[in-house]
Amino acid sequence: MPDNTAVKETKNVKVQKSRKEMTKWEWTLHEMKRTRVGYLMVAPFLLMFLVFTVVPVALSILLSFTSFNMFQWPKFIFMDNYIRLFLDDDLFMTAFKNTMMFAITTGPTSYILSFMLAWFINELSPRMRAFVTVIFYAPSISGAVYLVWGIIFQGDIYGYVNGWLLKLGIISVPIIWFKDAKYVVGLCIMVALWTSLGTAFLSFIAGLQGIDRHLYEAGAVDGIKNRWQELWFITLPTMKPMLMFGAVLAITGSFGFGGIVTALCGTPSVDYVAWTLTHHLQEYMTTRFEFGYASAISVVLFLIMFGANIGIQKLLSKVGQ
């Protein structure tokens, strides 16, 4: 075998032109031939990815310009869905505002919380750190575990919060927490934050662990006086790739907000105070079968998620420059 390849290679060298002699296209073609195994290896995944992620997004954009109910061929109506969304659908505006409100409150908070907690536990002993990590990370991987908040804030006297508030004489009748417009939003944000210490949190922990201790020693020699300066001048710039990764996950998670509301408050939530784009989309998709219109809603959601992500990436790439 080795002899054969050697012969082949010398042959190739004779036949081939060098990179400088080839045009850009010739070179690309030559590279494609050389790496054809690479295409073969990426193909199965790529096929799935195209069918279940790329095509659906593209198809949503196309369908959003049509009126479609799954039984008849889509009818092209151009911008009508969008005009209806923004001018003629009060509930959409409510959903839009609520989604923005949830995203702006839970997104940055969970991001900063993830980072601060990761930073705080960074100096614990390894065993203690592993233990605390499990406690903080557990809610985010436990699926429907947030239903426990429904038990804690149960609307009758058997709920933990009501039971104790009654016992202490703070309230005289039990509060129906998840049906009361005053509390729903706050509670949902709290539950969302409770489940939000996820992959980004682990990424931050790993990032902090990976920082070379010598940097801190050098920093101390150079006149860094306290942990906050150390954070600003050494830790954050070194962690930039993790910060960007974490931001993507935090943004995507916060705009997709909705499942927790449905599970705890039911749909629609009282007075639509926690009605998000996710709910609006579900409504038009599963009960009204207006697929064209629902597509327009998902395109809006797509655009704000994507826009927010690209914007934040641009912003974060400036950190430490």
Binding site: T278, L281, M305, F306
Partner: peptide, 16 residues
């Protein structure tokens, strides 16, 4: 794809 949640493509996924 990490920047969008599955909610966005839920409807067209269903059609597929």
């Amino acid at each position: 794809s990490l920047m969008i949640s599955s909610t966005v493509s839920g409807l067209t996924n269903f059609i597929i």
